[in-house]
Amino acid sequence: MKIGRNKGRGGWLFLASVVAGYAVTALVEADKARAALAAFLPMLGTVAPVLVLVLALMIVSERFITPRRVERWLGRNSGPGAWLIAAGAGALATGPVYPWYALLAELRRKGMQPALIAVLLYARAIKLPLLPLMAHSFGAPFTLVLSGWILAFAWLSGLVMRRFGTKTETAS
């Protein structure tokens, strides 16, 4: 798969370019680079539990979720239930999005249709643990209506991605 071949080296190149960005910042404003590094460690601490969760899910996925099952539950011919599963999983997914990309890439390799990945990623906007806070800040009706529209647009994004998002990359 084209994506799979490139992502190994691409990840390290990306990290190297960010480190280079730090080096340039350190040359121009050393204090800012130091402050950014100081902010990085607590951020890593926040993401670490999500990384562990994602790794655990990837192991479980390798153990129990065969390509045949993914194809049946979340593949091209899966029914409307798959769209509900994707939206529910998105609403329940916690933490920053980038640790989840690895799991989604793995599920995609096993046959999950990209449209459902888009649904899941969009439905992440419904932050269940933060809903009470949003209701407190902006009101319960606002929170309810916004969540409803986000859910509707999660499915719409899936439909758009099915039409336009994967023309050249689904070949394996």
């Binding site: 402050a35 950014a36 590094l37 990837m58 920053p96 690895a102």
Partner: peptide
Amino acid sequence: TSAVRAGRGFATALPIVIGMLLLTSLLTTL
């Protein structure tokens, strides 16, 4: 075998995740 395979996939994503965290902290500081 599942752990080895998952670990291999996870290791591929790890530099991207670390890079994202570094980039985020740099941008929020700047």
